[in-house]
Design a protein around this nucleic acid. Structure first.
Lengths: 249, 249
DNA sequence: TTGATGTTTTGGCGAAGAGTGAAGCATTGT
DNA sequence: ACAATGCTTCACTCTTCGCCAAAACATCAA
């Protein structure tokens, strides 16, 4: 009974409404200052500071000090994944925060899950990647087939550089709104960056929600089509793909 | 901020040490009476009753009334999966409950994760199933290839019956001790039943830990070998041959 | 250096909730 | 029918913990 990791300490940390709000806000992927966190969570600045210190102490957050600003962010993708899982269970069990609302509909369509895309559009992309044989099962999870590798290399994504990192290249992250997987891992993050850079989608102001243009959605799904039979359909946004080397750290 | 599921209510529910202990105990997969839960969590019977009522009310637990006994169990595999994810994050972040201890080593080797096997032995099985092309990626997650289906039919597992259920047949559940996936879903549960029935492993008294015999481990891994190579047996001694990760359709 | 802004620390209040013990219900056995 | 067992509910005490207000601290601009 007294074996295993201390799940209670972790869950109780997430269980506080103020801290949960902060974590949910940070799921958008961009770092927030203490003051912004306070505004997001609807608490005073001192309260936020205390909560952030606890989350930091537990290793869930990292902080980047820049002058008098302190930018807090999730410590890593695994933490985002656990929060996403919790959200999924909460949604399934029927614990909604309020009524669905219009804002939530936008989040279901597309949103950021820390550093990669989630929601309806992202699960659709995952499904096509699998159907076209680019994503395959692998002993340690999910992998990229040779064909998939070529396809993303053609888009200027440096797969070898991604593989050099300790973080797995591909991971299936279970979407909380859809109940199907979307692509996480360093490749998922690279695709999200690509989508933003090329204007396929734009992030909403202070929310995880992402607005995907119709052309952008087509271009996103076109990533799953093999390089050979790629048909330049109505999406005109992706004409400038050749001038993006897309080498990132 | 005010979107999405109420993660705080859920996490705060899990965050109480007593409730976390109860959930951890129920992760073993077998239903416990209120009194047993109290003993597991180290609290009084009324306290346990109150906690169980809350978990029940939130839909995390189900209860089976039999005479004067009330058997509590996890409400479903998805809840077990979320708890397993939390355990993984807690372990990674470094929140151990106490010292590692010998008990935990046994749990790392093999244990029950609600209704399927987890731990070193289970992740090894998963890896071989993938290498031998029995588990393949699928648009909605993970699927069983025709070859895999034949193999498990040969073991007497009624795949069609499993597919008829709403629960997915195969799921990749991230192991908290290993950081690799093991097989969950109804097929994972069926394999665990098989392993118990055939004596490949036996459950420890009041723990999630499972003791796997050397022969049992070989037999378990032999499930991943294509049907043509083997004859259906009960305790394969000869499972070790030169392996060809042959790709099957 | 002075002033302004962002952030953290302290002290004290207040409310939420966990625990205990005793009583109330249901079921089982003699 | 009576007693015993297992579980739940109730009433109460107590600790815990989060919040706010004010102040201390650090950094940047003038």
């Amino acid at each position: 009974m007294k074996n295993g990791p201390d799940i209670a300490a972790l869950a109780s940390l997430i269980g506080d409404p103020a801290r949960a709000n902060i974590l949910a806000a940070l799921m958008g992927g961009k770092a927030l200052t203490a003051g912004e966190c306070a505004a997001e969570a609807g608490i005073s600045a001192p309260a936020a500071s205390g909560h952030l210190a606890k989350l930091l102490d537990a290793g869930l957050l990292v902080v980047l000090v820049q002058g008098r600003h302190r930018y807090y962010n999730l410590a890593g993708p695994d933490i985002a994944e656990a929060v996403e899982t919790l959200m999924g269970l909460a949604a399934r069990v029927g614990l909604r925060r309020t009524r669905p609302g219009p804002r939530e509909a936008a989040m279901r369509k597309a949103r950021f899950c820390y550093d990669h895309l989630a929601g309806d559009a992202a699960t659709a992309l995952f499904a096509r990647l699998v159907d076209n044989g680019m994503l395959v099962a692998q002993a340690d999870g999910l992998g990229l087939s040779p064909g998939g590798r070529l396809r993303f290399l053609a888009e200027g994504i440096d797969i070898a550089a991604l593989e050099a990192k300790p973080r797995p290249l591909c991971r299936a992250c279970l979407d909380w709104s859809e109940r199907r997987p979307h692509l996480a891992g360093s490749l998922g993050a690279a695709i999200a960056r690509l989508a933003i850079e090329r204007g396929w989608c734009r992030r909403e102001a202070a929310s995880r929600a992402v607005h995907v243009s119709p052309d952008g959605e087509r271009a996103l799904l076109a990533l799953a089509e093999p390089a050979s039979d790629r048909t330049p359909d109505a999406g005109g946004q992706d004409a400038d793909q050749s001038k993006h080397p897309a080498r990132r750290a």
